[in-house]
Computed example of a mutant assay.
Amino acid sequence: MTGDDIFYTSSEGLALHARSYGASADGPAIVCLHGLTRNHKDFEPMIAGLGMSDRFISVDIRGRGQSERDPDPANYNPAIYAGDVLVLLDQLKLERVHLIGTSMGGIISMILMTMIPDRISSIVLNDVGPVVEQAGLRRIMASAAPSAGYGSWSAAAEAVARSQAVPYPRLTPEDWMAFARRTHREEDNGQVVPDFDPAIITPVPDKPPGLAARLGMWRLFAKMKTAPLLVIRGEHSDILSAKTADKMVKRHKRASLATIPGVGHAPLLNEPESLSAIRHFLGETAV
């Protein structure tokens, strides 16, 4: 897609990247935050499908895409990521933004609501909430295990199809190739490798979070009540349960839920149902 690169520097000097799409309109920009192993390209199908004139800014979280790999893996955590996003917003002088966060990007969005609530016009949480199902988390970590790479783009696409067939049962061979090209890069030696630092992958604890951690996440979610919220959930998600999604909408009071049929974690957001829900939501919260 046609867009403009944005380069900026984290508070401790790490070189970071984002990409801007669309005109620099007067209204709030729409800032897109991807999931654990994805990058800014994850939102290009959604942006193209929406066909809106708004300005979209899609971020490469540190350690992914064109953002620098962090020499200290301890910095791969959502609180640090949220600080990076705030640096970007300040550099671009964005006083008001909409946030669209997929999975990990949704957690970052929740943290940003505690940091800059007055600057956030609305939030879309894509298949994530205060409760993350452990079985789904284990599946994600297993599918994202470090790979030595592939000898061709075709081999990479076939590997992606094998690892992601459960959440995306309807994708075609052409879709899998596009998926691979969004999530991998070709190195100088011709090897096609996942486009993230392997150090972002950490073991999943044997035990689920304790009571204090669970309550803490719901308290974090409670901070979001000042902004309109759209919760998007894959019908077969193993990360965000239907029970948790319903509870989020009931507790928030200004939230709506869109369940995307036939997909798991996480909707790619170019599904017709996703595009319709996002377009309507952004239209209602344009100011």
Rank of each mutant, 00 (worst) to 15 (best):
V193A: 00
V166C: 00
M217Q: 10
Y168S: 08
G190R: 09
L220H: 07
H184M: 12
P167I: 03
G210R: 09
F196R: 01
D188M: 13
R185M: 09
P194A: 02
G210Y: 08
R185T: 15
M217H: 13
A180G: 08
D206Q: 12
A148W: 04
G216W: 15
A161Q: 14
E158I: 06
Y150G: 01
D197M: 00
D197N: 02
R181C: 00
P169D: 09
D195H: 07
G149A: 07
A155E: 14
A213Q: 15
L211W: 06
R182D: 10
V204D: 04
E187R: 11
A178N: 08
R185Y: 03
R170C: 07
R182I: 03
P208Q: 03
K207C: 09
H184G: 01
A180Q: 08
G210C: 10
R219I: 02
A156T: 05
P205V: 10
R162E: 12
W176H: 05
D188V: 14
A157C: 03
F179T: 08
R182N: 13
A159E: 12
S163L: 10
V192E: 03
R219E: 15
D197Q: 01
G151E: 13
H184P: 01
G190F: 05
W153H: 04
A165N: 14
P208C: 09
P169G: 11
D175M: 06
M224L: 13
E158L: 13
D175H: 14
S154Q: 09
K223G: 06
V160E: 13
D188E: 14
V166W: 05
V160M: 10
L171Q: 11
R214H: 11
M177P: 00
N189L: 07
A222S: 12
A213R: 12
P208N: 05
L171N: 10
E187W: 02
K223A: 10
Y150F: 11
A213N: 05
E187A: 08
K223M: 14
F179C: 00
G151S: 10
